[in-house]
């Protein structure tokens, strides 16, 4: 049996076929494909704040991209450009804390990295153009900013990325204070692009979007860690 990887999802009004603006759980299919190509079985997790019992059946978790995290989660007032989805925050933070407690392998993408940061007691820049004075992390609607990142020697992300440090970003917020996490990757402007928790078996957050290229370096590493998890706990099932 392949390891089962949960992917957190949006809830949005979606339009397709005969349906117009029908409230739907959805996530870009790139995430599903990235997990499949890396040898895992993806299931999508609609937000649910009742409890985190679904983790009993998962071998790994992807915190997917999405809207901004509510600033009161890290003690700030909202910036005018901050757009949040409080229900998703509540559900994903509950999942995230429970996943950390059981040392479930975790990959955070974009918003997911920012959630990891907030859960670790850190904080975010709410609107990067105000801080950095440029738009390289989100050049325009639907356009990814291609950059060349620098990684900390000896870190997990440095080993995974190998010779190709190219990243594709689409975000207007960023990590200000990583809290208990270790920053292991940076954009040319110094903004954190990767965070890790060296005390846990696999906790990695990246600010860019590895799913768009179905990057097997990262999703493969998550699935490999989840396979170990799956083998280790199968007696409990």
């Amino acid at each position: 049996m392949r390891p089962i990887i949960g992917i957190t999802s949006y809830v949005l009004p979606a339009t397709w076929g005969v349906w117009v603006d029908l409230e739907s759980a959805l996530v870009p299919h790139d995430y599903v494909e990235a997990i499949r190509l890396a040898g895992g079985r993806a299931v999508l997790l609609p937000p649910d704040d009742l409890d985190t019992d679904v983790l009993d059946r998962l071998d790994g978790l992807v915190l997917a991209g999405g809207p901004d995290v509510q600033p009161d989660r890290y003690g700030q007032e909202p910036h005018p450009a901050t757009v949040t989805h409080p229900e998703r925050d509540a559900a994903e933070l509950a999942l995230l804390h429970a996943a950390l407690d059981r040392d479930l392998p975790l990959l955070g993408v974009c918003r997911g990295m920012q959630l990891l940061t907030v859960a670790a007691g850190g904080s975010l820049h709410q609107h990067l153009p105000d801080v950095l004075g440029h738009e390289k992390h989100r050049p325009g609607p639907g356009i990814y900013g291609s950059q060349s990142a620098r990684f900390a020697p000896g870190s997990r992300i440095a080993a995974l990325m190998g010779d190709d440090p190219t990243i594709n970003c689409f975000h207007h917020q960023g990590v200000a204070d990583p809290g208990a996490l270790t920053v292991t990757g940076w954009a040319p402007d110094g903004l954190p692009e990767a965070v890790e928790d060296p005390d846990r078996s696999f906790v990695l957050g990246v600010q860019w979007h590895p799913e768009t290229g179905r990057d097997r370096r990262l999703f493969g590493a998550l699935v490999a860690a989840a396979t170990k998890e799956s083998t280790g706990t199968c007696a409990d099932r």
Binding site: V11, A14, W16, G17, S24, L26, H29, L44, P46
Partner: peptide, 17 residues
Amino acid sequence: EQVQYGRNDLMAGMLPM
């Protein structure tokens, strides 16, 4: 399915809530 939401038009894994 190819879905539209906000300014996006992309292939998504999805289901009505």
